[in-house]
Design a protein around this nucleic acid. Structure first.
Lengths: 231, 231
DNA sequence: CAGAAATTTGACCAGTTGGAAAAAACGTTA
DNA sequence: TAACGTTTTTTCCAACTGGTCAAATTTCTG
């Protein structure tokens, strides 16, 4: 049960495809509607994640989706609704790994696989990560309330689990909030700063293997740190 | 001697203030020119770091700078030049801490103070961080070459230092590139994702103290990891 | 202070932007 | 196949965009 479902769902509104005709009873979506909406959202993810909300234009999205602007507007009557749809969908997917952290699991295993999953997300859904990053850079005007309620709630919940692990001496006593931040930061970095990562690694090391390297490095960092065990 | 000075300096061009009149010999800048350019760059940093290059408008910048658009264009004849100026200045400041890493210093001290400095940068110059992040999200079209040459060069240099430390058994043998990435990621996170950090920490813990907390947590993470020393 | 140079303003422009409206084309089903 | 609902296209618009230009104003310098 996704905790982050949220009030942004109010994005629906409009007439075109979503709320078919006039005041009649809403009809089930046609095949075309489902397909085209999918194509549009896919194209919009591309554009919004690169340019941000203001920087993206409906024309760009329409072109990427292979249709005319008015045609696109038939499915999503305003730019903002496409964006909102993407944001809710993204948040839902994006936080799944955090939700999966299990208080009953072995702390080391749980942390390890959380890091793994987050790196895999950066590898497999980099645009979603960038979409979110873009929103954050702008000060999160369209998701701030969600962050303060749903996200904070979810994090608080997981923080308690970690405090339990600390009490049990399974992990070192430290700040659980910053712990979570550091996992987010290090893993999402590989999506958000992908260009930089590849530029610095160079042609030879910048291949797909970089995600595996990153995962291995991060596991060690988080578990053991950089200092040798015996000195 | 800043390694990152770069070809972007070609940003200069134009007529207005920068290259005073016609083909005459370039004259020294007046007081007003220096002042206004400063005001403009300050305002532009605000806008660009929030909206990205495309999302920002000259009007917004002009208003933030308290002047009319044509007046602003008198000092910087095109939008792109303001942006380039900001980018070079930012890169220079932003990479200073990395340059300072000293191969002769004590590894632990050096790493510690690198992390410290980076966190302080995020606290004191968050907009510069966001400006850079924005550029990265867009795929770095205006700095890619700089990253591939100057930045990579600088990083390679520091990577060697770290390999030296590993050879000497001072720090654990690990991937030095990802090591640097993880320091960048964790520290810059506090500037780039500031909204999120504050939303999750909540009113009580989201005050200025968060940077000190972050620094303390990160020092421990990087040196010792999350696992207890003896189990 | 006069004159020149530097700065600021207002009017303007062509291209882009988000979006509306209506008509045309298409698909489905009674 | 006729009628209806769905989808697409064409045309259009007002606001905004980056930028120009000449005239007006202010500041500096001798």
């Amino acid at each position: 049960m996704p905790l982050i479902k949220v009030k942004m769902l109010e994005a629906e509104g409009g007439q075109g495809a979503v709320k078919p005709t006039g005041r009649k009873r809403a009809r089930a979506q046609t095949r075309i509607q489902r397909e085209k909406q999918e194509v549009i959202l896919e194209a919009a993810l591309d554009v919004f994640s690169r340019e941000g909300f203001r920087g993206a234009t409906i024309d760009q999205i329409a072109e990427a989706a292979g249709m005319s602007k008015p045609n696109l507007l038939y499915y999503f009557p305003r730019k903002e609704e496409i964006y909102k749809r993407l944001m809710t969908a993204m948040l839902d997917v994006w936080l799944a790994p955090l939700r999966e952290i299990d208080s009953d699991g072995d702390p080391v295993t749980e942390l390890r696989s959380y890091i793994r999953r987050k790196i895999e997300m950066s590898r497999d859904y980099p645009r979603q990560s960038r979409l979110f990053a873009n929103e954050m850079l702008q000060g999160g005007p369209r998701v701030l309330d969600v962050l303060e309620t749903d996200l904070k709630g979810l994090v608080d919940e997981k923080v308690q689990i970690m405090e339990g692990w600390m009490d049990a001496g399974k992990i070192v006593r430290t700040d659980p909030y910053h712990m979570i931040f550091s996992i987010w930061a290090t893993t999402q970095h590989y999506a958000d700063f992908d260009v930089q990562v590849r530029a610095v690694l160079g042609k030879d090391r910048g291949g797909e293997g970089r995600f595996e390297d990153a995962a291995r490095y991060l596991e060690n960092l988080f578990l053991h740190g950089l200092l040798p065990k015996e000195r």
